[in-house]
């Protein structure tokens, strides 16, 4: 069990900033919206921190909150003056370095195709690509393992077709 203080919370956020960024990036392409979304995810993680159940993996808890916030995130709602002075900079941000151009283009394409999926499908493929087992995906989403398996196969097929279409 973690002590309920901001130091341990910040350590957890720092160690898992990749999860938060990747989820936010999959649901928000626009930089300004993504900044708000990341802020909202971290805020909700902090508010839920005292309720963290250690019987679940830490990453399961973070995925659940990050995905729940991202799926129901609507910018106009989030900007309702709860935080009177939004931060001028991003809380989690990427420095300028890039991958080799060709690989970067493929990643951009993959992200584009993921963003074109429906919200629930997006969560499924994101969790799959992140290397979660089917049982873990089922726990995070609240569906059966066989349901996960069917979905993953279908979405992989969709992505494959999309890549095939652009490579023709």
């Amino acid at each position: 069990m973690f002590s309920n203080d901001s130091t341990s919370f910040l350590k957890i956020i720092d160690a898992n900033k990749g999860i938060i960024y990747k989820v936010a990036n999959s649901y928000c392409r626009d930089e300004e919206n993504r900044k708000d979304l990341i802020q909202e995810i971290i805020l909700q993680l902090w508010l839920s921190f005292p309720k963290y159940d250690p019987s679940f993996k830490l990453s399961t808890w973070i995925y659940r909150i990050a995905l729940n916030v991202s799926i129901s995130f609507y910018r106009k709602e989030s900007r309702r003056g709860r935080i009177s002075q939004p931060f001028p900079e991003e809380i989690i941000y990427l420095t300028a370095e890039k991958l080799p151009l060709e690989q970067n283009e493929d990643i951009e394409m993959l992200q584009k195709f993921i963003r074109e999926l429906k919200e629930i499908d997006r969560a499924v493929i994101l969790l799959y690509l992140e290397g979660n087992s089917q049982q873990e995906i089922a726990d995070i989403l609240g569906i059966t393992v066989s349901n996960v398996s069917t979905k993953v196969s279908r979405i992989k097929q969709t992505l494959k077709q999309k890549f095939a279409a652009i490579n023709r």
């Binding site: 901001s6 919370f9 910040l10 956020i13 720092d14 900033k17 990749g18 960024y21 990747k22 802020q39 971290i42 805020l43 902090w46 709860r82 935080i83 931060f87 900079e89 991003e90 809380i91 989690i92 941000y93 990427l94 420095t95 300028a96 370095e97 890039k98 991958l99 690989q103 493929d106 990643i107 993959l110 690509l129 992140e130 290397g131 992989k156 992505l159």
Partner: peptide
């Protein structure tokens, strides 16, 4: 697909930065 995602993940882990001050401020809201 998995390899591509892995390279994306590597890129993030090398270049992703947490603004600790702003994150800490959130815990004070």
């Amino acid at each position: 697909l998995l390899a591509l995602w892995e390279s994306y993940d590597r890129k993030l882990s090398q270049n992703l930065v947490l603004n600790r001050q702003n994150a800490e401020d959130i815990t004070k809201f």
